[in-house]
Design a protein around this nucleic acid. Structure first.
Lengths: 166, 166
DNA sequence: TGTCATTGTTAGCCCCGCCTATTTTTGTTA
DNA sequence: TAACAAAAATAGGCGGGGCTAACAATGACA
């Protein structure tokens, strides 16, 4: 079981995404989205071909093998998941959430990943969209102040959701 | 403003931590905690000396410059923060939380970091320790089931904290 | 069908972070 | 104080992932 570098995983993800939106993937496209020059792409792709993640004929288009696609799917799934967390929980902009997700994705352990999954699912299953605490948290992020009491509007200082009086 | 590689940051953090617990830091110590050989340490340290983060006399002990200490402090703070999140929110073991924090720390953007800070502070300020939703989430992680209703113990399926009846 | 722009490849270089083998320095101790 | 063990430094090599410059293949079009 070949273990890829973070950078190689980026290439795999990029191929996967390009393939989804553009049908064919060229060296030039990859270079452009990854912010590198063509020869760099050729070098990395050559390694990915050797380890069986990528197919390409000489001077031809780039595509993922079954193996490559399975891995890419998994990686992109994780990335999307993290992006969702950064965007919906931490209220980052879509762009910044994406940047963070893309780089962080490589480095979390499987259990950690599972916990992020659980966190998101918890919100969906048990919070019905946007639970109160999450609204409170967003308020806190924006203003730096504790959220107002549900009943009277005073700032919270007692238990969760409650002010001094309630 | 020199930008350090993730790996160099690891070296800086390691020096900082060793210095805190052991007073003097030797090449050998760093090699041991970072899992590399001495010449590797010598090489990286040499770079950190050039960029003014580290002091060391020939064949002598390693120490941080003021600049190096400031940066290391910042990095370790971020790492601890993330560790706290992984441990207390996602319920990872201390070890696994540490591993994830150490690697993820390098890659999040400043705003993202601030949001993690906010998240932790939110819990402290507004949740008074362990808010209900966090207990519910922990339950969800362990069992995969929605948490029980506060009032009757039925599984939740309505609003947050409420079952069908309540 | 021949020409030429576009694109992919090769060659050859660099830096980083790792290694082993070897040498130098240090400090302890007989 | 001379010898020796331990630790640090140097020399030199390797792979990954960048780069530029030069070259080869492709395909579109006159």
């Amino acid at each position: 079981m070949t273990v890829l570098s973070a950078r190689s995983e980026d290439y795999l993800k990029a191929i996967y995404k390009l393939q989804a939106e553009r049908k064919v993937v060229r060296v030039k496209d990859l270079a452009s989205v990854l912010g590198v020059r063509s020869p760099t792409v050729v070098g990395v792709i050559s390694g990915l071909k050797d380890s069986g993640f990528v197919d390409q004929e000489h001077y031809g288009y780039i595509s993922l093998t079954t193996r490559g696609e399975d891995l890419a799917k998994f990686l992109v799934l994780n990335e999307d998941l993290l992006k969702k967390f950064f965007e919906e929980i931490l209220s980052l902009t879509p762009d910044e959430a994406g940047v963070n997700a893309c780089s962080v994705e490589h480095y979390i352990t499987p259990t950690c990943r599972e916990r992020f999954v659980s966190f998101i699912r918890f919100l969906e299953v048990c919070g019905r969209g946007s639970p109160k605490w999450l609204d409170h948290f967003r308020h806190f992020v924006l203003t730096g102040e504790p959220p107002p009491c549900d009943r009277c509007g005073d700032l919270l200082s007692g238990e969760e959701g409650k002010c001094e009086k309630h």
